[in-house]
């Protein structure tokens, strides 16, 4: 039986969190988790881009790249990495130009985060997972959206924890990134408590 997209959405947020269980998007997670506002902005931008690129990449993968696809019959799956990354870069560029033209306010809120997203491995990772787990279109949508929300949730939680951590007495060698890693580990352990809530492979 096919797993419903809604189930995948919740699984991607809690049990299979893209950051805490699949380790994707660590670079921007470490760099941009100092302020809660920044974390929320980046989280929103990632969610939006991840949802859209998962769907676009799904259509391209099954419309063009797969053997015997409707548009090109030859097996082009080996090209998928290069196509996916090009789609993501082009999409981010397009969104940037679009919101700059139509909503300057949103552009100032999100604009600085957009270029960062191109190199966020969570976005490319979502597209690769979609192919490896052979999701359908609806499932890809659920996974892209849920993955984005899950990533945003993790980075916002981390930003809150880091604010508190400014006042704690951390042993000298652990100051900086080391303690963040350990705290993230504890956070991942907490999220493991959700296992059993929903089950996907």
């Amino acid at each position: 039986m096919e797993t419903s997209p809604l189930l995948i959405l919740f699984a991607a947020i809690f049990t299979n969190n893209i950051l805490l269980a699949s380790f994707l998007g660590m670079c921007s997670f470490l760099a941009c988790s100092q302020q809660i506002e920044t974390a929320i902005g980046l989280g929103a931008a990632v969610t939006f881009v991840m949802t859209c690129t998962s769907v676009i990449n799904y259509l391209i993968y099954y419309g063009i790249l797969v053997e015997g696809a409707p548009l090109v019959a030859a097996d082009l799956t080996f090209m998928s990495f290069i196509v996916f990354i090009a789609v993501i870069a082009a999409f981010v560029q397009f969104v940037e130009m679009f919101i700059e033209r139509f909503s300057p306010k949103l552009y100032y809120a999100l604009g600085i985060f957009l270029p960062l997203i191109t190199v966020n491995c969570a976005i490319l990772g979502a597209s690769l997972f979609m192919v490896i787990r052979s999701y359908t279109l609806g499932q890809s949508l659920g996974f892209g959206f849920g993955g984005g929300i899950g990533w945003a949730l993790a980075i916002v939680l981390m930003a809150g924890l880091r604010k508190k951590m400014n006042y704690s007495n951390v042993p000298a060698p652990f100051r900086g990134v080391a303690i963040i890693m350990v705290v993230t580990g504890v956070m991942a352990m907490v999220f493991m408590g959700f296992v059993g809530m929903v089950q996907i492979q």
């Binding site: 805490l20 380790f23 652990f174 900086g176 990134v177 080391a178 890693m181 580990g185 991942a188 352990m189």
Partner: peptide, 26 residues
């Protein structure tokens, strides 16, 4: 088992970075 699962990875890297900082302060 926790070392094989996801949290172990974060904690192991955290301790490795702390060790590197201890040997050669940043």
């Amino acid at each position: 088992l926790v070392m094989i699962l996801a949290p172990g990875a974060f904690i192991a890297l955290g301790f490795l970075i702390a060790l590197a900082n201890h040997i050669k302060p940043p």
